[in-house]
Simulated scan of single mutants.
Amino acid sequence: MVTVIVLILSGVCFFTYAIYSLEKSLKGNGGVEGSAENPLGAGDTERYENGLRVTVSEPRLEPDGTTHRFTVTYENESDRTLTALPMGAGRVPLVVNDGEPLDHDDPDDSSSSYTIDLEETVRKLLTRLDAGDSITVPVRVVGSKEGMTITVKVWMPFEGYRYDHPVYWTLTLD
């Protein structure tokens, strides 16, 4: 009788762990939401297992009528310091492009330019993020057209999570 109960409890534990693992594999980097096939939208937040939250704000039109601004905010909600991961060759932690994430056939017509203080961004993101701290990176899109879609691609810059895949956001400029 005890053996049967132990077998049943073991089966329940295994089944629970299998569902937990499946849910984890479908979340975040490389999963369903935030992938190139199903990007997040303005204002959405990606939450990582290590306590990092990344949010891309709504784009705001500047008074000049041709410039939009938005921010990418990295927040450490864990109780420990997150240490930066080394960047791979040619990989930067934040990239902005025209169009949808999988829109490879539509060449960039250079009608827009993006201003990200890349040196400052890399300096901030490639050090560490103390518990409870946040880093906000401002982005300017100049020469944007109304209704234009841009893609924001964020690589996980801190330890504690798979670094294989970026998370994507698409923003529509009004």
Results as ranks from 00 to 15, higher is better:
V2E: 15
V2W: 12
T3S: 13
I5G: 14
V6L: 15
L9S: 12
S10F: 10
S10G: 15
V12M: 08
C13M: 14
F15Q: 13
F15T: 10
F15Y: 15
A18P: 00
A18G: 04
I19E: 12
Y20A: 08
S25G: 11
K27S: 10
N29C: 07
G30H: 01
G31V: 03
E33H: 05
E33R: 08
G34C: 00
A36P: 00
A36D: 02
N38W: 05
L40T: 00
L40W: 01
A42K: 02
A42N: 08
D44H: 05
E46V: 00
E46D: 10
Y48M: 09
E49D: 13
N50K: 07
G51A: 04
L52Y: 02
V54I: 12
T55V: 07
T55G: 01
V56P: 03
V56E: 00
L61Y: 04
E62Y: 08
P63D: 11
D64G: 10
G65E: 12
H68G: 03
R69S: 13
F70R: 00
F70E: 00
T73F: 00
T73P: 02
N76Y: 01
N76W: 00
S78M: 04
R80T: 14
L82D: 00
A84H: 04
A84K: 03
G88A: 13
G90E: 14
R91C: 03
R91I: 13
V92H: 06
P93E: 03
V95R: 04
V96E: 03
V96T: 03
N97R: 15
N97G: 11
G99Q: 04
L102I: 08
D103K: 04
D105A: 14
P107C: 06
P107H: 11
P107S: 11
P107W: 10
D108L: 09
D109Y: 09
S111A: 12
S111V: 09
S113W: 11
Y114L: 07
D117N: 14
L118D: 11
E120M: 08
E120W: 09
E120R: 14
E120C: 09
T121A: 15
T121C: 14
R123N: 14
K124R: 15
L125K: 02
L125A: 06
L126I: 07
R128M: 10
R128W: 04
L129C: 05
G132M: 08
G132Q: 05
D133S: 13
I135S: 06
T136C: 10
V137C: 07
V141E: 02
V141M: 05
V142W: 02
G143P: 04
K145E: 15
K145Q: 15
E146A: 13
M148E: 15
T149P: 02
I150K: 04
I150M: 11
T151G: 04
V152N: 06
K153F: 08
K153H: 09
W155E: 11
M156P: 06
F158I: 00
H165K: 06
P166R: 03
Y168R: 02
Y168P: 01
W169F: 05
T170F: 03
T172L: 11
T172F: 10
L173K: 05
L173P: 07
D174Y: 06
